[in-house]
């Protein structure tokens, strides 16, 4: 994980064959510029970045479902709960489950845990839109390789 550049996911661990669930992991680094301000002498992961980690985990699942045809953008955060501090060196397990796929939007329930203990949770809604012009899709595909996303299963040759 490199939270200072919003790389919150290290690895896609598994995607359920039904494409309804995903499990990802991110190791909170010992060092990050994020911790210089949050907080001096007491480094903890900002809650907004835990939300971001849950959103990115869900995003990979949505990309798997639509085979990278469209890009999910976070639109709504509901019932966001940040239960305890997350500190450098902890390994975050992130789980997302699709609640509903509508026309141009997806609703999912997501949570993060450490050593099996629930840390954070939220219900997230994403707008799912055509890729913006430019290199965004290529960048996301590159990141997919880095996080062990099973591209060959979900991208048409």
């Amino acid at each position: 994980m490199r939270p200072e550049v919003f790389k919150m996911i290290d690895r896609v661990v598994s995607i359920d064959p039904s494409l309804n669930k995903i499990h990802c992991q991110g190791l909170v680094p010992q060092e990050s510029s994020i911790f210089e301000g949050h907080f001096p002498g007491h480094p903890i992961m900002p809650g907004v970045l835990l939300i971001e980690a849950m959103a990115q985990s869900t995003g990979w699942l949505i990309l798997a479902r639509n085979r990278f045809e469209k890009m999910p953008f976070l639109a709504t955060v509901k019932e966001g709960k940040l239960r305890t501090f997350v500190v450098p060196g902890q390994n975050l397990d992130l789980y997302s489950e699709i609640l509903h796929e509508g026309s141009g939007f997806v609703v999912a329930r997501t949570q993060g845990s450490i050593d099996g203990k629930l840390i954070c949770s939220a219900e997230l809604t994403f707008r799912v839109l055509p890729w913006p012009e430019g290199k965004m899709k290529a960048v996301v595909m590159k990141v997919a390789e880095h996080v062990s996303f099973p591209l060959t299963e979900f991208v048409d040759a």
Partner: peptide, 25 residues
């Protein structure tokens, strides 16, 4: 439009359908 996503979600669930919002838009 953001609130309408919540409404569409609730309508989809209540009626067991998928409002074709993309097509309408």
């Amino acid at each position: 439009s953001l609130d309408f996503l919540d409404i569409a979600f609730a309508i989809d669930k209540a009626f067991g359908i998928k409002l074709p919002l993309e097509q309408w838009t």
